[in-house]
Amino acid sequence: MTREVQSVILFLVGGALLRISAGDVFMRYVKESMRPWLLISGALLVLAGVFVLIDVVRAARRGDVPDDDPAVVDVDEHAAEGGHDHGHHGPRSAWLLVLPVAAIFLIAPPALGAFTAGREASSVAQPADADVPPLPPGNPVTVMLADYAARAVWDDGRTLKGRTVEMTGFVTPNPKGGWWLTRLQLACCAADAIPTKIHPVGGPESLPANTWVKVVGEWVPGGGTQSDTAIPWVKVDSLAKVEEPRNPYE
């Protein structure tokens, strides 16, 4: 890999990081709190690309062949190729960095949805605090699916009784008929996404997969308790199709 190509790859990778973290696109892939780090690292990579480019231009002015500059002799690259000497270039593995850039700009992969949620069992984490605090005031009150499920499954719906809740999630078709209101949770990035599924009672029979809906309803017992794979129920009072939220995960 020549110095010119190195600088182009640094520009591409840095530019891709800046591009997705300038808007909301990066939230399809990682948590919102990563934004400043993505911006900083993207900027540093672009800066590194600028420095490499300056080196190239300077070397060209001096009339050197930049790749034979002893300063950039790369010993360990020979190692990576089992000792075959292909000349003094930068690491050949860097070509692979074009792949994520191409994926970001050309495919623009969407947030994970019904495919991922359908493959994996619903997961309801047991609350660390045995004494579950009451929901905030208001009717309807907006709750996260994971919060609703934890209250329904691990606390017998004690804090949900008599409340009207509002939840936003996407549709995952239930292979046995009907559908689940679903939201994926991230620990770090989309590779570790874990679904929370909720069984709607009294809503439409079926909806297309990955449709985002806002459900207003009430807790009803059903779906099992005291199990981290239980799928709790919600009685649907009203349902509206909505746009995908800014952050598609919880």
Binding site: Y29, V30, S41, I107, P109
Partner: peptide, 15 residues
């Protein structure tokens, strides 16, 4: 889904 997971692993690791 594969493309999303690929991009997310790379993006998460970059910083």
């Amino acid at each position: 889904a594969g493309a999303t997971i690929f991009v997310s692993i790379v993006v998460q690791a970059m910083p």
